[in-house]
């Protein structure tokens, strides 16, 4: 995936799986991932299809991701914060 390099005014660092990403403070997790060219962060249960943002406003629950150990969070609703840990593929790995 080719990252879209954009200037970041208020940089903070989050971890996505094992990678460190510099993201804009005040964005949502979904916004931060999309700004880095990441469009999918979940696989569906049945057909293991990639999914990412869909409705963008908390209605559709397609953008679920694990954030700081909390599974199935809506990436479009949660703001990034320094040191945040985002784990993709939660659908299969939930304990």
């Amino acid at each position: 995936m080719k990252p879209v390099v954009k200037s970041v005014e208020n940089p903070i660092t989050i971890s996505v799986d094992d990678a460190q990403l510099t993201v804009e403070a005040g964005t949502t997790v979904a916004g931060a991932l999309i700004a880095h060219g990441i469009t999918a962060w979940r696989s569906t249960r049945k057909n293991e299809r990639p999914r990412g943002l869909f409705c963008g406003i908390g209605a559709c629950f397609d953008c679920l991701v694990s954030i700081d150990g909390q599974p199935n969070q809506r990436a479009c609703m949660v703001r990034v914060c320094e040191g945040q840990q985002v784990d993709t593929e939660t659908a299969k790995e939930r304990p």
């Binding site: 990639p50 409705c55 963008g56």
Partner: peptide, 8 residues
Amino acid sequence: PGVMTAGA
């Protein structure tokens, strides 16, 4: 992925 609502 990449397909979303216009609202998104």
